[in-house]
Simulated assay, not measured.
Amino acid sequence: MTEPRFPVEAGHVLMFRRAIGDPAAVYDPEALAPPTFPVAGAQFEPEHPLRPRPGEPWMGSGRTPSGTAGLDGGESRTSTLHAEQHFTYHRPLRVGDVLTPSRRPGEEWTKEGRRGGTLRFTSYVTEYRDADGELVVTARSVAVATSQAPGAEPGSGEA
C-alpha cells in the first residue's frame, strides 16, 4: 500500500476555516492553512482510526459513554479520550502543498486518577513532509484511557 498523500487545497482550507469559526474564512488561493489544519489529513487516510467506515462500529459514535464499546469484540471496560494536541511548524503550510504523513508511537505514562483508577496516557507523533521530503509540521497527540468502565462507581471492582 502506498503512503496516503494529503493535498492542501484552497477549498478544503476555506471549509476548515469556516468549520472552526475563523473570521478570515474567505476564499484565498494564496492563503496559509490554519494552525490545526493538519488534522484534516485524516480524511485522506483510509485506515485512520477516527475515520468512520460504513457497516462498522465507530469510535466516535457516542452510542456509549466512551464511544468505544464493542470495538474490541466485546463490551469495552475502559474509556478513551483525546487529551492534548500540539503542532510544531517547521515552515508555514501553504495551499498547493502535498503532504505525506508518517505516524509513530511516542511516550507512554500512567497517573493515578482523583476518583480512583489508573489513567494511561499514550502519545503519537505524526510528521508531515512535503513533495521534496522536507519536514513541514510535526503533530503530537495524547490520548488518555481510564482503567474503570464508564459510569462505574469508584471502588466497585470494575476495572
Rank of each mutant, 00 (worst) to 15 (best):
R115S: 15
P92V: 08
L93E: 02
S66L: 06
H82E: 04
R91D: 01
G74F: 11
A69K: 00
K111L: 03
G67Y: 02
Q85P: 09
D72R: 09
S76I: 01
V95Q: 00
T78P: 04
P105Y: 02
H82I: 10
G113I: 00
S102K: 07
V95F: 12
R91H: 05
K111M: 08
E108V: 03
G73L: 03
Q85C: 12
E112P: 04
G74Y: 12
G70R: 06
T68A: 14
S66E: 09
E75K: 05
T88S: 02
R104N: 04
W109F: 15
W109S: 09
G116E: 02
T68Q: 09
R104W: 00
E112G: 06
F87W: 07
E75W: 14
Q85V: 13
L71N: 10
S102Q: 13
T68E: 12
G96P: 00
L71S: 11
T80W: 14
L99I: 10
R94I: 07
V98F: 03
G67M: 01
S76V: 05
D97Y: 11
K111W: 02
L93P: 01
L99K: 04
T88I: 08
L81S: 08
E108G: 03
A83M: 08
Q85T: 08
F87S: 00
R103V: 15
R104V: 15
G73H: 10
R77L: 14
G96N: 07
P92A: 09
P92F: 08
G96D: 12
V98D: 04
D97S: 11
R104G: 10
G116N: 02
P92Q: 03
V95M: 04
E108T: 12
R94Q: 13
L99E: 04
L99V: 07
G113C: 10
R91K: 15
H90F: 05
R103Q: 11
G106H: 06
G74T: 09
E84H: 09
P101R: 03
P101A: 12
L71H: 13
F87M: 13
H86V: 15
R104Q: 13
R77V: 14
S79H: 08
E84V: 10
G74S: 15
G74N: 11
H82V: 05
T78K: 03
V95T: 02
D97P: 06
H90P: 01
G74I: 00
E75D: 07
K111I: 07
T80P: 09
F87V: 07
G70D: 08
S79R: 03
W109P: 06
L81G: 03
R91V: 14
G116T: 00
H90W: 08
L93F: 06
V95K: 00
E84L: 07
T110P: 01
P105G: 11
D72T: 07
A69S: 14
G67P: 03
G113T: 01
E84G: 07
P105C: 00
T100C: 09
H86M: 08
G96S: 11
L81P: 04
Y89C: 05
R91E: 06
V98W: 04
Y89T: 00
R114T: 14
E108N: 09
D72H: 13
R77N: 05
H82M: 10
E107K: 11
A83S: 13
S76C: 14
D72V: 01
G96L: 13
R94D: 09
P105R: 15
